[in-house]
Design a protein around this nucleic acid. Structure first.
Lengths: 249, 249
DNA sequence: CGCTCCTTTGATTCTGGTCAAGGCATGTGG
DNA sequence: CCACATGCCTTGACCAGAATCAAAGGAGCG
């Protein structure tokens, strides 16, 4: 059962005309696809299929090296569209895998082209949203290139907290984190053993600890300070409606 | 003197209608801005001005940490548009700086909005191009997170070679690289001293060496092998024209 | 000539990787 | 219900890749 009420995908679209609402409904009308955890949705080097709206669950983008080393590039959460690179590339240059149970609404290239023709304004809003993804990738580059292991881990935990909170998926000081330490390591460019040591350090320093599979923050302020965390990059604050609206005339 | 003939910006637009050509001319008609090397075009945390088409020269995107450490996030070369994030963010989340003498054609938000209204198809092509930038950022994440210092350096040199060759700015086996070792280090998440050692190693192993300010490749094949370099990610092979064209009916 | 900036090299340190083993929970089949 | 396997977490001992510190050698320039 998909909710009748606004889906996460619709957040931030602003005021829509009736025709635009129809277009969104049309896109979201495709049958939901269910995936279990640790499944491949889009496989690196394989031919691109359709893009997908994330309706539920966590996904990760990842790239593999020939020897099997893995880098997780970004997380993708409900409301986002994954696989739009397929508009530019015929083969996937990175994989998209599920981390939890996931529900996806496929958006075929034809459906997206239809949207572009029928409502270029909506298409633009979707494209402009993709700039947030770009900005997150750049923050990850900074994290990987210039922060030490501890600050790197702390920064990642804070980023996820903020993103989940915006989706109503995190409490003030905790959230379920469906990652093994090995997967955390693959986000951070570290080894699982060292991630374990950094988590221990965070615990011992009274910053955060795990209970079951949820991370609990014990000193958010100090964590923000350690990581140099500034959430602005996660909150695009320019109204795409304004950008794409007809002129005031 | 800007060339009258197709600018790099126009590469890949495919067949254009007369109206679309007019729109491009209109955008490119703005007075060119000249910058010397090592100037800031867009400053992290400052209010966004306009986006810019790169007409000539090299730019870098970079992010700073509070203690002054720097990560270079990507290079921007002729034909690309920088600063489109300004459509989503009112303040810049990273800086854009020049590395060489640079010529930029400013594209104000108003001008871009005008383009979106008058030719949504062109706007879409520009947005879809931005996916190549995204993909490059992800390759950099992989580079920073999962390749060792030597492979990292080699990969960067190969990526630049390919990008420059596509622009006619590199020969088969050499190109001018306007970077200090310190700047290379800031691309690679390393220290200048260690970059120097890796360059020495590349030289001693007969892979590549510098002459003046140009890098000369002595064994491209072996370098590709060391870095696991696959240029596909630099060549979006899906025709945006097809994606955005009206239906065959 | 005397800056300054960049490159180069050596000596040393340390962050994070590697290797190895044990613990603990969950699950499964006999 | 127990024996065993599996996957993940944890810890210790040791190692190595990259950082740091320090100094000297060019090259360009006012």
């Amino acid at each position: 059962m998909r909710p009748i009420e606004p889906t996460a995908f619709q957040r931030g679209f602003g005021t829509l005309s009736e025709a635009e609402r129809d277009e969104i409904r049309r896109i979201e009308a495709a049958p939901v696809q269910h995936f279990g955890p640790r499944r491949v949705v889009i496989r690196q080097n394989a031919q691109f299929g359709s893009a997908h709206i994330v309706a539920k669950g966590w996904l990760a983008e990842q790239k593999l090296l020939h020897d099997g080393r893995r880098q997780i590039l970004n997380f993708r959460l409900p409301g986002e569209i994954v696989g739009l690179e397929g508009l530019a590339y015929s083969k996937a240059v990175f994989s998209i895998v599920t981390l939890t149970d996931v529900e996806l609404v496929p958006v075929s290239r034809e459906a997206f082209e239809h949207l572009q023709r029928r409502s270029p304004r909506l298409a633009s809003i979707i494209f402009i949203r993709a700039f947030q993804t770009q900005v997150i990738l750049r923050e990850w580059e900074l994290n990987l290139g210039r922060r030490d292991a501890f600050a790197r881990l702390v920064h990642l935990l804070l980023e996820l907290h903020r993103r989940l909170r915006d989706l109503g998926m995190a409490k003030q000081c905790r959230y379920g984190l469906p990652l093994t330490q090995e997967e955390l390591a693959d986000c951070l460019g570290l080894t699982p053993v060292y991630v374990n040591r950094m988590l221990k350090r965070a615990r011992e320093e009274g910053l955060a600890h795990f209970e079951d599979r949820t991370i609990v923050f014990d000193d958010l302020d100090r964590m923000r300070q350690i990581a140099g965390f500034n959430a602005y990059y996660l909150q695009p604050d320019r109204d795409p409606e304004r950008t794409t609206a007809p002129p005031p005339q």
